[in-house]
């Protein structure tokens, strides 16, 4: 990674260098963009295609260093990735239309992964929040949980509350500015991932005085 580019990663409430290399599925032949009513289809029940066997096979994984591989590649090439996993060099990423259960189904303990990342194509796609919540609460995942893609300052507070602790800010935005977004509210009302209890369990609240 070049020193000239600004750091975009927030982890542990500070801006840090990214030690992970993101592995994407290769585009084979003509890319087919499925559209409906002019918008890219992100809805899994309308037939978001999974990665093809060819794509999975053709995915090039760097031979060394920490890598984040697509969920589909992990599921299909698990055997060859075991060694990397044992070395703590393997993370997995999923897109918001993919289901957490696919990852959890044959991997009882998700804490074998030092990192799980979730890709959000458009910031308005709130599925990323439920996915974070499920990973942390249902599947007891404790290691780094990263949001990447269209990750912007004004969603960071919500992402934090849903269990994310790592945010790769979109390349054209300042991570420095985005840091402030984590502090938007001091005492939120409802219980969520970061603060499991609602405010009326955390704090003594005044009754009616009038």
């Amino acid at each position: 990674m070049s020193n000239a580019t600004p750091k975009q990663l927030i982890h542990g409430n500070q801006i840090v260098a990214d030690q992970w290399t993101l592995v994407k599925l290769p585009v084979l032949g003509e890319e087919v963009v499925r559209k409906q009513a002019g918008k890219v289809v992100l809805f899994k029940l309308t037939g978001e295609p999974g990665a093809s066997a060819e794509q999975i096979a053709a995915t090039e994984i760097p031979a060394s260093g920490k890598v984040i591989v697509p969920l589909s590649v992990w599921l299909a090439r698990k055997a060859e990735l075991q060694e990397r996993l044992a070395k703590g060099e393997l993370g997995v990423w999923l897109a918001t239309h993919e289901v957490v259960e696919a990852l959890a189904a044959d991997q009882a303990d998700l804490n074998v992964f030092p990192l799980i990342a979730v890709f959000v194509e458009r910031f308005a796609d709130g599925r990323i929040f439920s996915i974070g919540n499920l990973l942390r609460t249902r599947h007891a995942y404790k290691n780094e949980l990263r949001a990447f893609g269209d990750v912007l300052r004004d969603q960071l507070f919500f992402l934090k509350r849903c269990g994310y602790d790592s945010y790769l800010i979109r390349a054209d935005r300042s991570a420095e500015d985005a840091l402030a977004g984590l502090q938007d509210f001091s005492e939120p009302y409802q219980g969520a991932v970061d603060l499991a209890e609602p405010v009326w369990r955390r704090r003594q609240r005044n009754g009616a005085t009038a």
Binding site: F123, S130, F157, F158, L159, K160, C162, P188, Q190
Partner: peptide, 14 residues
Amino acid sequence: RQWSTFHPEFALLP
């Protein structure tokens, strides 16, 4: 009202 105010998981519903 309080529970739904800035509910983090449901901030960007369909």
